[in-house]
Design a protein around this nucleic acid. Sequence first.
RNA 1: GGAGGCGUAGCUCAGCUGGAUAGAGCAUUGCCCUUCUAAGGCAACGGUCAUAGGUUCGAAUCCUAUCGCCUUCACCA
Length: 596
Amino acid sequence: MSLQAILSNHVQQAVKTIFSADLQTVEFQATRKEFAGDITIVVFPMLRVVKGNPVQIGNTIGQYLVDNVEDVTGFNVVKGFLNIEISDAFYINFFNAIKTNKTFGFVTPQEDEKAVMVEYSSPNTNKPLHLGHIRNNLLGYSVAEIIKASGKTVYKTQIINDRGIHICKSMLAWKRFGNEETPESTGLKGDKLVGNYYVKFDQEYKKEIEALVAEGKTVEEAKKEAPILVEAQNMLLKWEAGDEETVALWETMNQWVYSGFDITYKNLGVDFDCLYYESKTYLLGKEFIDQGLKTGVFIKKEDGSVWCDLTSDGLDEKIVLRSDGTAVYMTQDIGTAIQRIKDYPDVGGMVYTVGNEQDYHFKVLFLILKKLGFDWAKSLHHLSYGMVDLPSGKMKSREGTVVDADELIIEMADTAKDISEELGKLDGYTDAEKADLYKTIGLGALKYYILKVDPKKRILFDPKESIDFQGNTGPFIQYTYARIQSILRKADIEEAELSSKTDKSIVLHEKEKALLKQVQLFPEVIQNAAKQHSPALIANYVYDLVKFYNSFFQNVQILGTGNETEKIFRVQLSQLVSNTIKNALGLLGIDAPQRM
RNA sequence: GGAGGCGUAGCUCAGCUGGAUAGAGCAUUGCCCUUCUAAGGCAACGGUCAUAGGUUCGAAUCCUAUCGCCUUCACCA
């Protein structure tokens, strides 16, 4: 039982016996460092049931706790705050109970718990991934790991938008200007090659618009009538009709993109359990539209288009099928969701990692699925995150104002290399080991930088200012981990000693106590992060833990202490902390290096 | 115009369901490596929590209005 739970019971008991009143809940908070105590009970809320002076009430309850609770050793009252002092024995008990648990805080998936499907990434297949996709991927991956750690089975998935006018644009430009170029012939990554033709298309398109305007057309007309655009649209029609040549080219170019994406995903360290392709699911939603028409969820208009009337829910009418019977984005999403539940019957809820531009879309999607009568629809969540913007504004692939994912990853590793070489602490490492470490540190910096901020906030990324490696950063946390590993290597303590129980008579240093308190919070932090879909909570937690450790490290001798019992305890504590750091970083998709 | 989000130190961000004198990092200025990794530690400086009201023992947090920035409201995805 947690400290709060134990104290809660006793405080309620105290209020009952002394004031003969019933207290519903007891409010706790961490004791501020300028006061003595380990945990604080707020007296003010009790005034609703107990009349009187808060200081007096605090004193009375404090005395009761000292008299009746073994682990409460003292108290003091400041205004309406009852600061409780807890015995070292309590923390040592806790330490003894969990010190050999390698996954403290993680809950193993329960059989009766429904699984969760987490969708993330879901790129278009016409251009390379950029910094915006990186945020999406890191968030989705991390949230999946966090939900897993909180005790649920998780499936990671994505919907690949492999169909549509965007890929036709790249296909057309390649056909016209490509001279049969391939990734092999150019040495380019497949997604980069295809992306180049997407940009090429846009350049040609703009030229044609200008030419048409010069001929006297309005800009609006020119945008619609530009021949290259018309041809791209024809290409999409041909694709939908199953034209052999078009489909073959589409398959080839998509394949190029996939192999390019695979490299980026691998470098980023993200993965998926299953994939869904829009080209395979876009027709799927239609049968459910038919079904919804029968049950009255949807209405057909005179021109044949199908709509969902959401005005009674405070929203608009939403189209779910065009008048020509073709699918829209919504149709496909309805079909995909239903298909996923069919494929994975143990799934009880889904998380969609998609930018906040689409808040409205998902609000509508979830509402429609509810109206269609799926009970799992109430367990759908849109993990909506803010855009990554540049000082110049939004990133735009067509205008070349994007921060390329592959390039950024390489730059980060290069920076790590520069810093590392300057510090020169890697004697004995092979070049391969070094290269590996630079990647780990570079990625650590990037991932932490992205994940430490609240997902719903937008991120302003200035390419001119490099991502930090000092202070509240990934490398700082990795460094602390490496530091502890160094201690453990030098400790020269036998395995049996490392798991031996700590004697309760030991007196804890304040820095040691602070560490144990912080470790104690981990399970709760994981649950919270899972509930709120927020890796930022994990990042903030591990940052605090690491700060406490560095302070401990600087102020307390670990191996150098003369006392053998103390030494063993401190090494064990270091091990526990390092293990917690590693596990927390793991939830963020960040590796913890042995040296750096 | 309807809907939604954001606004905290020069910069980047924390601040849980309302609680003590609003916290970190970067930057700036001091210290601390003959002792376990200085990508570190200790300290100083820095705030009208956008603004104005309200709710109450108590508000950065909840409510209302105003201002500023962003998104969305397509037979696009």
